[in-house]
Structure formats: structure tokens, C-alpha cells
């Protein structure tokens, strides 16, 4: 125990200025929510419903990829489904924890790699939460750091 090498300096914390999410959810392996937050001014229940619906698509996407390819499967699942008002994007970690981001359809300026970097940021932050010795895996996430990171990614209530 002599010298500590800090491996996580090269994490990607891009500035995400243009795109904003309206709802962000983290779903456990067993498909129950660990964390879900939406823009406060809007109908919260609707977002819960949207996220819940998206889980079926996530399952479908995971299982559609053949077993052999599963090893190299990309974590980012892309656009899950568009509704009239929203676009729903998904991401699954190798431990089958799902991240779902809902974006307003009117926001046309967003690019795919911006969504990707949002997920990457979310994943890094989630990893930090998991590494907190006081966090019990499987419990709802109550971390302030995670909260503020999510807030930064959400659209400002207008």
C-alpha cells in the first residue's frame, strides 16, 4: 500500500449545453426503479408510464441481439421509440441496469453522440454512487451528487 494511481481522471465530462432531458430514470436489473426524476412542471405520472413502457423495448433490443454477439453488444441502445411529444433513449450496463432518458420531440437540434455522452456521464455518476460504501445496492438512489448531475442534464422548468 504505497502509491495510489488514480485511474478515473480521464473521464469524459463534456459540456452539454444544447440538449436537455425532460425525464431521467435508472432501473434496476429486476426492472424496478432505482431513480426517476422528471421536469417538475409536467405530469410526473405520464413519465413513469413512458419509462415503464420503454422497458419492454429494452428487453426486446437486448434479446434480439444473438447470444454470441452479446459479448460485444454496445451499451447504448439508441432511440427506443418516439411518441408524439417525446423521444425515449435507452442504455443498458453489462450488469443489466437500465438508464432511460426522455427528451422533448420539439428539440430537434440534438445529435446522437450528445445523447451518448449524456448516458456516459450518467453511467460514470452511477458508478460513483455504487462505490459509496453507505449506499446499499438495490436501494433507491438518494445521492446529492447524483441528483445535482441529473439536474444539470434536465431542462430548466419553463
Amino acid at each position: 500500500m504505497t502509491c495510489l494511481c488514480f485511474l478515473c481522471v480521464s473521464r469524459d465530462y463534456d459540456e452539454l449545453s444544447s440538449i436537455m432531458a425532460v425525464c431521467i430514470a435508472v432501473i434496476a436489473k429486476e426492472n424496478y426503479p432505482l431513480y426517476i426524476r422528471s421536469v417538475p412542471t409536467q405530469n410526473e405520472l405520464k413519465f413513469h408510464y413512458t419509462v415503464h413502457t420503454s422497458l419492454d423495448v429494452v428487453e426486446e433490443k437486448i434479446s434480439s441481439v444473438g447470444k454470441a454477439l452479446a459479448d460485444q453488444r454496445e451499451l447504448y441502445l439508441g432511440l427506443l421509440y418516439p411518441t408524439e411529444d417525446y423521444k425515449v433513449y435507452g442504455y443498458v450496463t453489462n450488469s443489466k441496469v437500465k438508464f432511460v432518458i426522455v427528451v422533448d420531440s420539439s428539440n430537434t437540434s440534438l445529435r446522437d453522440n450528445e445523447i451518448r455522452s449524456m448516458f456516459r456521464k450518467l453511467h460514470n455518476s452511477f458508478t460513483d454512487v455504487m462505490c459509496n460504501p453507505f449506499y446499499i445496492p438495490g436501494d433507491p438512489i438518494q445521492s446529492k451528487a447524483f441528483d445535482s448531475m441529473v439536474s444539470a442534464m434536465m431542462v430548466q422548468a419553463c
Partner: peptide, 15 residues
């Protein structure tokens, strides 16, 4: 100085 993974060290102390 031997290198050691800092996450392992931090998590061990956390546990």
C-alpha cells in the same frame, strides 16, 4: 513504491 489500485483501497476502507 508499489502501485496499488486506489478504488480497491477506498472500497476496502469503506467496507
Amino acid at each position: 513504491s508499489k502501485k496499488m489500485n486506489s478504488e480497491l483501497f477506498t472500497l476496502t476502507y469503506g467496507a
